[in-house]
């Protein structure tokens, strides 16, 4: 499991960096799908198979493929690619990289000083369902109203 976790984590990191630095939008999106799939594997390794499935189906499956279709339909072509290349100047990276490096140092520090025991507890579909339809019922209902509001607003703004 530990081996699986580290493999997936490295794949996720590489894929995410590739998302940022690739100039072709379609390539970037394919890398993003890989990154999400490896996050799903991480969920699985941590003992949450249901969350892993949802991540794979909803994010990598539905949303990303939708994005991909839109990008392919827009057919952005060579001009955007050149534009993107122009935006990728090394000096723009200095600020973000410094900040991220600080965060990395801080996180390594925290992880090294703390004695963390990662023993996965399996959380299956049954446990989640019992929670969702028991004490968390109101949250589910509320989320449905949230989606309804989004639907109505999107319908109104996007028509014609």
């Amino acid at each position: 499991m530990i081996f699986l976790f580290y493999t997936a984590a490295i794949v996720a990191l590489i894929a995410t960096i590739a998302v940022i630095i690739s100039t072709n939008v379609v390539h970037a999106l394919v890398y993003l799908i890989i990154s999400l799939l490896s996050v799903a594997v991480i969920f699985f390794a941590l003992g949450a198979p249901f969350a892993a499935m949802l991540e794979a189906i909803v994010y990598a499956g539905a949303i990303m493929v939708l994005f991909l279709f839109v990008m392919m339909m827009l057919n952005l072509g060579q001009t955007t690619q050149d534009e993107e290349k122009e935006w990728m100047q090394p000096r723009l990276w200095i600020g973000p990289v410094t900040l991220v490096a600080l965060l990395l140092v801080q996180m390594t520090n925290v992880l090294l000083t703390q004695d963390v025991d990662l023993r996965p507890i399996e959380v299956g579909v049954l446990e989640i369902s019992v929670l969702l339809f028991g004490p968390w019922l109101l949250a589910v209902e509320l989320a449905s109203m949230l989606l309804l509001a989004g639907l109505v607003a999107a319908y109104h703004l996007a028509k014609k």
Binding site: L142, A154, L157
Partner: peptide, 10 residues
């Protein structure tokens, strides 16, 4: 979020 999503539309 419910309040905000409605406000985007409004």
């Amino acid at each position: 979020e419910t309040l905000s999503v409605c406000l985007y539309g409004m």
